[in-house]
Design a protein around this nucleic acid. Structure first.
Lengths: 128, 128
DNA sequence: TGCCATGATTCCCGCAACTGGAAGGTCAAT
DNA sequence: ATTGACCTTCCAGTTGCGGGAATCATGGCA
């Protein structure tokens, strides 16, 4: 399969597939005589795996690690769970942060009458 | 005040203050004969304002807009409230997104026994 | 056989918001 | 005079690609 075909089947932009090849995340199985990247079903699975992991917010480097585990038939599920738990912790941290930002901002916005007057508690709140 | 002083007082890295000057977000009030950036209390307030707004997740361009309102004695609080509400909506969207990622990932992690065995529902879950 | 559309290649730039580092000039104090 | 802290500019790197240029390959049709 050429890059266009596999990109469509993996539901990824061609550019992204090429990028993953460049950084050695998912290498093509070979090259044609004209230099075209050639992919097999194995890479298709890897690309789909990476797309899924990326959509969960794993970084490319985390995907690399996950992919290593994905390929390693001898890995323990403990290792995978550890990465997933890390990511869960990251998400929870980010959510807590957003929650407090949200609450503070809502408080500021609520205290602002939002009309033609110049007095604005949001600005004074931000300048402190 | 030289850049080091104002950076400390605004609680920002020197690099950041210089960057804000480069992009015209907060310009120094002048330059010394040796070419040093010189700042006054006015810029100090602006830098603190920007730091605060950035910490609320406003982009630099949004900060530029907020700063414009901050400086404009004739602006209506409506304009400011609109920006704050936009940001609140962004935050709420992001939180909803993170929440669903979180829930899915927790579900995957819970289904994984996390021991020495190779079988791992997280990986199979990610590859679909 | 020639032509053209489509798809492949590499390479470089740009994004956001900085951060780090190099090479060099300035200032105050010893 | 020399140190050391501070300042300057410029260049490169970060993350994960996307856009676009210039060029080459492939396959079908007249």
């Amino acid at each position: 399969m050429n890059i266009g075909i596999i990109a469509r089947r993996a539901d990824l932009p061609t550019k992204t597939v090429r990028y993953y090849a460049d950084i050695g995340l998912v290498l093509p199985s070979g090259r044609s005589s004209a230099g075209y990247r050639i992919y097999s079903e194995i890479e298709l699975n890897k690309l789909r795996f990476v797309r899924s992991a990326r959509s969960f917010g794993f970084t490319v480097e985390e995907c690399r690690e996950l992919l290593g585990l994905y390929e390693d038939r001898n890995r323990s599920s403990r290792d995978v769970k550890r990465l997933a738990q890390q990511r869960i912790n990251q998400i929870e941290g980010k959510m807590a942060e957003l929650q407090s930002l949200h609450d503070e901002l809502v408080r500021l916005a609520d205290s602002c009458h939002g009309d033609d007057r110049a007095d604005c508690p949001i600005l004074t709140g931000l300048s402190k």
